[in-house]
């Protein structure tokens, strides 16, 4: 199925989001320790498919990289809940389009926007390493990516628990630039989170996040359990060139 988020941040959708957030939280200083999961993710980003190929030298380098990244990050995150109010007018427009037909927007009563960043110190570390030792730079780049994803996973789990108490179900998180969510939605998303002021997260003219190891995402909130709402390669723009897929990985 096409993701519900195909149309998120479309004009129709934006009109249906109530502008004042209902709730949210501002979190900082996630402490992150090097652990097995981070290690596994980091080596996966480096292209290693199995541990057998990892030489002792690379193993040491990744351990060192994880330790340094975990010590360098100055992470901050924010999320806010916005309720969605679908007016009759929007429903009419929905019904006119096949895409909207597949997207029971009315099933979603709200959306959580989130932003998280490792902070600018990681960018400095990365630029410095790229001058001194490119192999190590690549390793810490992967470690940093693993770290920001771990922080987002943490936040998502936390949200799942919070909303489960209210008998609400959450979708996966979708980021601008993935699936069919346009990268340019970054601007609106950051504004709605007041992310610049709250967590120091910005975009460039071309909608790249700065600091670079940052994530923005949205999560749908529904009273109903959405089956088939899993991350599938089919919804991804990168599916034709993704090297994980080339190597045989695939999410149905």
């Amino acid at each position: 199925m096409e993701s519900v988020f195909n149309m998120l941040f479309s004009e129709v959708f934006m009109e249906s989001v109530k502008k004042t957030p209902r709730e949210g939280e501002f979190l900082k200083n996630f402490s992150l320790e090097p652990n097995e999961k981070l290690y596994k993710e980091a080596v996966r980003y480096l292209g290693y498919k199995n541990n057998a190929a990892i030489t002792p030298e690379i193993n040491l380098l990744v351990q060192k990289g994880l330790t340094e990244i975990c010590a360098t990050i100055n992470s901050r995150a924010i999320y806010r809940y916005f309720s969605i109010q679908v007016s009759a007018d929007h429903c009419a427009r929905e019904d006119n389009s096949r895409e909207c037909y597949n997207l029971p927007l009315r099933q979603y009563e709200g959306i959580i926007l989130m932003g998280a960043t490792l902070g600018i110190s990681v960018d400095r570390l990365l630029s410095r390493a790229q001058i001194q030792d490119m192999a190590y730079a690549l390793v810490i780049d992967s470690c940093a990516t693993a770290a920001i994803e771990a922080i987002c996973d943490d936040l998502q789990d936390r949200l799942k628990t919070i909303y489960a108490h209210q008998q609400r179900y959450l979708t996966n998180r979708y980021s601008p630039g993935y699936g069919n969510v346009a990268l340019s939605t970054q601007v609106q998303l950051l504004r709605m989170l007041d992310a610049e002021r709250k967590i120091g997260l910005h975009t460039t003219q071309n909608f790249l996040l700065t600091p670079s190891k940052s994530v923005t995402a949205m999560i749908g909130v529904s009273q109903f359990w959405q089956k088939n709402e899993y991350i599938s390669c089919d919804i991804c723009k990168m599916r034709r060139i993704c090297h994980f897929r080339r190597e045989g990985e695939h999410n149905e």
Binding site: A53, T55, M134, A135, L138
Partner: peptide, 13 residues
């Protein structure tokens, strides 16, 4: 696919 990018870079260095 016997070695990976970090090793290629280490060799280059």
């Amino acid at each position: 696919g016997i070695i990976f990018l970090p090793q290629l870079l280490q060799a280059a260095a």
